[in-house]
């Protein structure tokens, strides 16, 4: 069955989420693909607690948005997603901007909670669909949130992986370095290198990112779509209401 890139990314994120047991995942604003991934996991693991920050109805918090940070401070959120306008080879995140402080080149929106969440969440998955040398840089212009910390600085975890529109990288915090874990259909080690501003390791044989199964696609387009429709109507219309593969091949 044909699938959208967003669907491949959602099942890829879901696989990473399931790699280690967890009880509570939070997803921030404007993150439809991570939200789809956690719904995929949740539907197979009903005990999983999801805190989707921007749901209008059924918002998980009763104390305002600070409750997310209070929960995370206590270690009650197991996994969070982060991205950035720039991400570098040591997994530093820049949500500030380029050029001199505070972003005299291109100003990004700002750091949100990243400077706290990255250090206080045991598990972080980095996600940025655009995979280009302007996003994946050798060294970020400014650090919103550091990829690794000095010894003695309290920190619960690091990035586990970076998922982009081209590949999956694994991150080794001890070495402060990414390794290519899989490439999406149509990509090679060389094409990934050409689009990446930082140096990374790659095994001799790099596997292909597994395609979504028919069951995963059916769940995404059915129950996941139903759950996401209120928060992400445009995303659901664009990704999940696309013509079926039959209609597409006929067209």
């Amino acid at each position: 069955m044909s699938h959208a890139t967003e669907e491949l990314l959602a099942v890829t994120l879901a696989r990473l989420i399931r790699a280690r047991p967890l009880k509570h995942v939070a997803v921030g604003a404007a993150s439809p693909i991570p939200a789809a991934a956690v719904w995929l996991v949740k539907l197979a693991q009903p005990s999983l607690r999801l805190s989707l920050l921007h749901r209008r109805s059924g918002n998980p918090f009763t104390e305002g948005t600070r409750e997310l940070f209070d929960l995370t401070g206590q270690g009650r959120i197991d996994l969070f997603f982060l991205g950035g306008g720039q991400i570098d080879g040591q997994a530093n995140l820049n949500l500030i901007g380029t050029g001199d402080w505070p972003g005299t080149g291109v100003r990004f929106p700002g750091s949100f909670g990243s400077a706290f969440m990255y250090m206080m969440t045991p598990r972080t998955i980095l996600f940025r669909e655009e995979h280009s040398p302007r996003v994946l840089v050798e060294r970020v212009d400014h650090v919103s949130a550091p990829g690794v910390s000095a010894p003695g600085v309290f920190r619960r975890g690091h990035a586990e992986a970076l998922v982009t529109g081209k590949c999956v990288f694994a991150f080794d915090a001890a070495r402060g370095r990414f390794t290519l874990a899989s490439v999406h259909p149509g990509e090679t080690v060389e094409s990934v290198r050409a689009a990446t501003g930082f140096d990374f390791d790659a095994p001799a044989e790099v596997p292909a990112t597994p395609a979504p199964t028919e069951a995963e696609l059916a769940t995404l387009r059915g129950r996941v779509r139903d759950e996401m429709l209120e928060t992400y109507p445009e995303f659901c219309a664009r990704v999940f209401n696309r013509p079926s593969s039959n209609e597409k091949s006929a067209a």
């Binding site: 948005t65 600070r66 940070f69 401070g73 750091s111 949100f112 909670g113 990243s114 400077a115 706290f116 969440m117 990255y118 250090m119 206080m120 650090v143 919103s144 949130a145 550091p146 910390s149 000095a150 600085v153 309290f154």
Partner: peptide, 26 residues
Amino acid sequence: TCPAIHTRLQASEKGVPFMPLRGIIG
């Protein structure tokens, strides 16, 4: 960063001059 704003306001709620917050270092 978001929790720093909340924390600074919570310090005012309590009438104390400062509050600590994890993270941010680096």
